[in-house]
Simulated scan of single mutants.
Amino acid sequence: MARDSYDDDRVVVIEKDSTNGIGMLLLGLAVGAGAALLFAPASGRETRERISREARRAGRRVKSMTDELGDRVADQVERARFSVDEQVGRAKDAVQSRVDAVNEAVSASRTAASHARADIERAVEHSKQAYADGRRAYGERTRRTSGEPGPMSDELHPRNGAEGAEDGVAGQG
């Protein structure tokens, strides 16, 4: 089975639910950190300071992870956009080459039709001329056999001023 060249490109799939797993991970981290702080043997003040510190740290991690995730998604979207643009360009080029081929074929067929028409017109003219020559020859032959004045032999003798007369002298024969 032949493969088109555009099938070789990588396919990028972006899932809508991919952020749900990260959100659950972050929620689990926050709940675990909070539980660890609550069950730790420390004074209230130390526990509050530790919770505050861990919350800031978790906030920085979440921000870092969301920034990284955003960068990844943006990069994947850009790659997908580039791939689509490239495939659209290839499709446009393919369509244009087909349009050009059709235009060339139409032009060639018009030229061939024009030549064929000229050939047919020449053939019709030759046929008309041959028909007229045949009718003229038939008429002359009919006149000869019916006794009308005219040449009596198969050989037509030129008359005074007739075409084909040589030296202005009637044919002798």
Rank of each mutant, 00 (worst) to 15 (best):
D8S: 11
R10Y: 11
V12P: 02
V13L: 11
K16E: 15
T19I: 15
N20A: 14
G21Y: 14
I22L: 15
G23C: 14
L26N: 04
L26H: 07
L26V: 06
L27E: 06
G28F: 02
A33K: 02
G34L: 09
A35D: 01
L37C: 06
L38V: 10
F39N: 14
A40Y: 05
A40H: 08
S43A: 11
E49N: 15
I51F: 13
E54P: 00
A55Q: 02
R56K: 03
R56T: 01
R57Y: 02
R57H: 02
R61W: 06
K63I: 04
S64P: 00
S64F: 10
D67Q: 02
E68V: 00
L69Y: 11
D71K: 05
R72K: 09
V73L: 14
D75A: 11
A80I: 00
R81S: 03
V84L: 10
D85I: 04
R90A: 04
R90Y: 07
R90P: 01
D93K: 12
A94Q: 12
V95E: 06
Q96E: 07
A105Y: 00
S109H: 12
R110K: 13
R110L: 11
A112L: 06
A113C: 05
A113Y: 12
H115S: 12
R117I: 03
A118Q: 08
D119N: 10
I120E: 10
I120L: 14
V124C: 03
S127P: 01
K128F: 02
A132C: 02
G134W: 00
R135G: 00
R135N: 04
Y138A: 08
E140P: 03
E140G: 07
E140W: 05
R144Q: 06
G147I: 05
G150F: 06
P151N: 15
P151M: 06
P151Q: 10
P151H: 13
S153L: 11
S153V: 10
H157T: 12
P158L: 03
P158Y: 04
R159L: 07
N160W: 11
G161T: 05
G161C: 05
A162G: 13
A162V: 01
E163S: 13
E163L: 10
E166F: 12
